[in-house]
Structures are given as C-alpha cells and as structure tokens.
C-alpha cells in the first residue's frame, strides 16, 4: 500500500492529472471556449425541447408573454391606472414585460441549470459553466419571437422606426451578460443549497414590481430622489430604460445610462463566472 506522498509521486512521474482539482481560470475559460459548439447545440436543443410537450408548441413562446402583457395592461393600465409619466402606456408596458420576461426566465432557468441536469453532470465530463451559459442562451433564443411581437406592438402604437432601434442589439447583449452572471451565481448557490431554488422566482416577482415594468419609477418616486436613483440604476430597471430609449418615442438614454449598463453586465458577468468557477470541483455531489 502506498502512502499519500508515494501515490502523488507515482502519479506525477507518469504525468497523471489529479481529478477534481479546480483548473486555473485561464485554462477553464479556454476549455469553455473549446466547448462552444456543445454550448450552442445544448442551447438550441433546449429551445426546441421546451414547448414540445404541448399542442400549441412554439406558439407558446409568443402567447405566454402576450397573455402576461394583457393581464398587466388590464390591472395596471385600466384598473389601477399607473399610466402617469409613461407617455404611451401600451408601448411602455410592451417593452417592460417582454424584456423583463427575458431577464427573469434567464435568471430562473439559469439558477436551476446545474441542479436540474444532474444526470448529464454525472454522465459526462465538461466545464460545468457550459450549463448556465447554454440555459441563458436558450432563453435568449426563445425570446426572439417575443421581441418581434414587442416591435410589432411598438409600430402599431406609432413609434417611428429610427436608426436608434439598432441600439436594441447592444441592450440585449448587455442584458445577456448580466443575466448570465446572475445565472452563474445562482446556479452555484442552488446546486449546493437547493432550498434557495424556491426563492429565486419570488425574488424575480419582487423585481418585476420594483423595476418599472408597468409604471414610471421617476414619476412615482419624484419626492424621494435617493430612492429614485437606486431604483432607476439597479440593472433590471436600467436595461428597460435603455431599451425604451432606443425604441419608444419620447424616451432617451444618456451616455451615463449606457455606461452603467456596461458596468453591470461586465461586473456581474465576471464576478458570476469567477464565483461559479471557484466551486467547479463541487458540482455533482447530489
């Protein structure tokens, strides 16, 4: 029987690698990039598989946000009347629901990306960051029909198409970076302590209410400037106002709004990746 030292020496003499040792961040990233086809295939398969189990199939990708949109329009536009400061409430709400929906489903799906794919994790060896990346990508693919519906609503409401509409592309990319970072952070937390998985949808419901999806934050917090700044510059609300600045008539985004948007995506994305990577050797335990 070998001692620990002898075993390690024997292993290094024959160039064996130690399993379960955390790779270095640089080689982890390289491995992740090498698996880009795997990520893409997993993401597109996920999008295909999503609505397969129902009669209407992919139609749900459009129907679901449309129904949510109608409910919010009825409750907040008609019954509670939160139209003040929204210029055109229907356009305002369309951007709010459809784009918030993207972030919310990315965060919720991403948080379960490890814990709900244990069979895959226990069957094949690959950098586990593949899973949150693919799941948020799936959400992004699934979101395209909804983004198109959003644009149609905006056009019907008479918002002019300008070159600024192209700004939607960087907004969606920044949203993806931010959502991915959140997915990394939550995927690690939920895979290690599954209980938090139940809290994520509730937290997202809260965010839906405080992120200016169906009311104008500035109008409602006019008397509380500090609160107004906090609410306006938290990432969910910020990305919605960036998007409105691009596509809704009468809204503009300033350069510092964009700067904050880039900051959130870069900071949360990077922190999330590092946080997730640090637990790489621990995924798959149960």
């Amino acid at each position: 029987m070998l001692s620990h030292e002898e075993a390690a020496a024997l292993a290094s003499r024959h160039k064996l690698r130690r399993l379960g040792a955390r790779p270095r961040l640089a080689s982890y990233l390289k491995a992740l990039v090498r698996r880009r086809h795997f990520i893409w295939y997993l993401a597109s398969s996920g999008a295909m598989g999503r609505n397969q189990g129902s009669y209407l199939g992919q139609v749900w990708a459009v129907l679901n946000p449309l129904l949510q949109f109608s409910v919010l329009w009825l409750v907040f536009g008609i019954i509670l009347g939160t139209r003040e400061g929204t210029k055109d409430f229907i356009s305002f709400l369309a951007v709010g629901t459809f784009l918030f929906g993207f972030m919310a489903s990315g965060v919720i799906g991403g948080s379960k990306s490890i814990s709900s794919r244990m069979a895959l994790v226990r069957a094949l060896e690959f950098p586990r960051a593949v899973l949150p990346t693919a799941v948020t990508l799936t959400e992004m693919i699934m979101e395209w029909p909804a983004v198109v519906v959003m644009m149609i609503i905006l056009l019907i409401r008479g918002n002019p198409i300008t070159w600024q509409w192209l700004g939607l592309i960087p907004v969606l990319l920044l949203m993806y970076g931010f959502t991915l970072g959140m997915a990394f952070i939550l995927a690690r937390i939920v895979s290690i302590t599954p209980d938090y998985g139940n809290l994520v949808p509730i937290a997202m419901t809260l965010m839906r209410f405080v992120s200016g999806v169906f009311y104008s934050i500035s109008t409602f917090t006019a008397s509380l400037p500090a609160l107004s700044v906090i609410l306006n510059y938290q990432p969910f609300a910020l990305y919605l106002s960036l998007a409105r600045g691009c596509v809704q008539d009468g809204f503009t985004a300033q350069w510092y709004d964009w700067a904050m948007g880039v900051f959130w995506a870069a900071a949360v994305g990077f922190i999330g990746l590092v946080y997730f990577w640090r637990a790489e050797a621990r995924y798959g335990r149960d």
Binding site: L19, G20, G284, R285
Partner: peptide
C-alpha cells in the same frame, strides 16, 4: 466509478488519471 471518472467530487483522498475517461 463516478468518482474515478471525475464526475462526482470525492471528499477525501485523491484520484490521479491519465487522459480521457
């Protein structure tokens, strides 16, 4: 086997392996 394949973390000790499992 799962631990030897690097698919399940082990809590103590070490596994050294060559190439792909």
């Amino acid at each position: 086997l799962r631990a030897l394949a690097g698919l399940m973390p082990y809590s103590e000790g070490a596994v050294y392996a060559k190439g792909q499992t």
